[in-house]
Design a protein around this nucleic acid. Structure first.
Length: 121
DNA sequence: CATATGACGACAA
DNA sequence: ATTGTCGCCATAT
């Protein structure tokens, strides 16, 4: 069986997995799409506790301001910037232009995802 | 049950 | 642009 907590984390991971290459999203946006309003910190928690060997595009999640969430001198910051630039996302001063790269899921995607929560029952 | 902790976010200086 | 405060909320202790 699955606890509510597990399903919540799964929805977050699934949502992040849907961010297309070359686009980015924010913690808050992911939370909302995953059905967790005001759950930005929960998205942070989910990313912090990703399972081993995951293939989740964690680097496509940024702060609402477009800034990378890690300290500019950290190794993780460098890795995230590298991955973003590798797929064509410009990172200027540790920041991405959200108006330009923000993921805008269409109706199909939004209607498609939630169904995963339905057939859980 | 009480506190502390964040890969957050909005807002006021 | 920066910094500090406060709100938020699941987890950890």
């Amino acid at each position: 069986m699955s606890t509510e907590r597990e399903r919540r984390l799964a929805r977050i991971r699934d949502t992040i997995a849907d961010i297309p290459r070359g686009s980015v999203s924010s913690y808050g946006q992911i939370a909302e799409i995953a059905g967790i309003p005001r759950g930005a910190r929960q998205v942070g928690y989910a990313l912090r506790t990703l399972p081993e060997g995951h293939e989740i595009p964690w680097h496509r999640v940024l702060q609402a301001s477009g800034h990378i969430a890690f300290d500019g001198d950290s190794r993780q910051f460098a890795e995230q910037r590298r991955r973003l630039e590798a797929e064509g996302v410009a990172v200027i001063s540790g920041r991405v232009d959200m108006t330009r790269y923000r993921w805008q899921p269409d109706l199909d995607e939004l209607l498609w995802k939630p169904s995963a929560a339905w057939d859980e029952t």
